[in-house]
Amino acid sequence: CDFYVLDEFKLGNIMSSSLINLISSDKAVDFIKSSIKEHDDCKVCSFKNLCRSGCRRHKDFSDNYKNRFCESFKFFYSKNISKLIEIANIVKFR
């Protein structure tokens, strides 16, 4: 994600470090751990498999990782889930 192309998130240089060392660094692991944290509502949400608690950038870390678009996602998915399933079945069986 280009929103995290900042010095504070830099893992290193692939020309001087191995990819394994970069992605297993403490900084990388901490970033991933903070990204997968989810709000308690996500644990019981029927649309969790679709939004996967949303993008880290849209989570409010001061509100137990609540995604600011949660209600919008729920509204969209509830109105369009049958169409999304239909599209998925068309693609799956092609």
Rank of each mutant, 00 (worst) to 15 (best):
F31K: 01
I36A: 10
R52N: 15
A28M: 04
N49T: 06
D40T: 05
C45M: 00
C45G: 02
A28Q: 06
D30V: 13
S35D: 08
K27F: 11
C45H: 00
A28D: 04
V29R: 15
C42G: 08
D41T: 11
S53M: 02
D26M: 02
F47K: 01
I32W: 04
F61Y: 05
D60F: 04
F61V: 14
Y65A: 06
H39C: 07
E38I: 11
S24W: 10
K37I: 02
C42F: 03
V29H: 05
K48D: 00
F47R: 07
F31C: 06
N64M: 10
I32R: 12
K59S: 03
C42R: 00
S62D: 13
R56V: 00
H58W: 09
R52I: 15
F61M: 12
S62P: 02
K48F: 03
D40R: 05
C42S: 01
D41W: 14
C45F: 00
I36P: 04
C51N: 01
K37N: 14
D41G: 13
G54I: 12
N64K: 14
K43F: 05
S46N: 05
C51W: 06
C42A: 01
N21Y: 07
Y65E: 09
L50N: 05
N21S: 14
S62I: 13
K27L: 07
D63S: 10
R52F: 11
C51Q: 08
F31G: 05
D41R: 12
F47Y: 12
L19M: 09
D30H: 08
I36S: 13
V44W: 02
F31R: 01
L22F: 12
L50Q: 01
N21A: 15
N49I: 04
R52S: 15
N21V: 12
V29D: 09
H39Q: 07
K27V: 01
L19Q: 07
G54L: 10
K37H: 10
L19S: 07
S35A: 13
K33H: 10
S53Y: 02
F47H: 08
L22Q: 09
V29L: 13
C51E: 03
C45R: 02
E38N: 11
L22N: 12
S53Q: 00
E38H: 11
R52T: 14
F61Q: 01
C51T: 01
C51K: 05
F47P: 03
L22I: 14
H39F: 09
K48W: 00
C42N: 04
C45L: 00
H39P: 05
N64P: 03
V44Q: 10
F31Q: 07
S35M: 04
D40G: 02
I32N: 06
N49H: 10
C42T: 04
K37L: 13
F31P: 07
D40Y: 08
S35F: 02
K59P: 02
K48H: 06
R57I: 04
E38K: 12
N21D: 14
H39I: 02
R57F: 13
L22Y: 12
H58G: 11
K48A: 01
R52K: 15
H39W: 08
I20E: 07
N21I: 09
D41H: 11
R56S: 07
K37V: 02
D30N: 15
F61T: 00
D60K: 11
N49E: 09
D41I: 12
D30M: 15
